[in-house]
């Protein structure tokens, strides 16, 4: 399987962290606060949809709330494949960082 990109990694981690509250607004807010990535409200759905199509995320419909003008939320959840992909990239990072010599200039 391909190695996922940094952005995808960040989005997957955000979804993981937000657990049952991972939908457009919260994902976007967390990405901005934690990583400084500024997605537009609609724009965030482009990578999210891509990840769904790759099978790393699934989405499900939530209940509508009044402050959303009666519109429902679309929640995202990691799939086992998504967790695998994150684990793999963490292992890769560990391997790549492990036993690095002192930087010399």
């Amino acid at each position: 399987m391909d190695i996922i990109t940094r952005t995808e990694e960040l989005i997957l981690l955000t979804v993981w962290r937000l657990r049952d509250n991972a939908y457009g607004i919260t994902i976007r807010k967390h990405l901005k606060d934690a990583a400084g990535l500024d997605y537009s409200i609609g724009g965030i759905y482009v990578p999210l949809d891509r990840l769904v199509r790759k099978g790393l995320l699934t989405s499900y419909q939530g209940n509508p709330t009044p402050q959303r003008g009666g519109m429902s939320k679309r929640f995202y959840k990691l799939t086992p494949d998504g967790i695998d992909a994150l684990e793999r990239i963490r292992t890769l990072n560990t391997i790549m960082w492990d036993n690095l010599p002192e930087p010399s200039f």
Binding site: Y23, R28, G42, Y45, Q67, R68, G69, M71, S72, K73
Partner: peptide, 20 residues
């Protein structure tokens, strides 16, 4: 703009952010 697909989550997101 989002008429072709299921637009309610996106429009909902906008509403919520606006309210906030």
């Amino acid at each position: 703009i989002v008429a072709m697909q299921d637009y309610s989550p996106i429009v909902g997101d906008f509403e919520e952010a606006y309210c906030y």
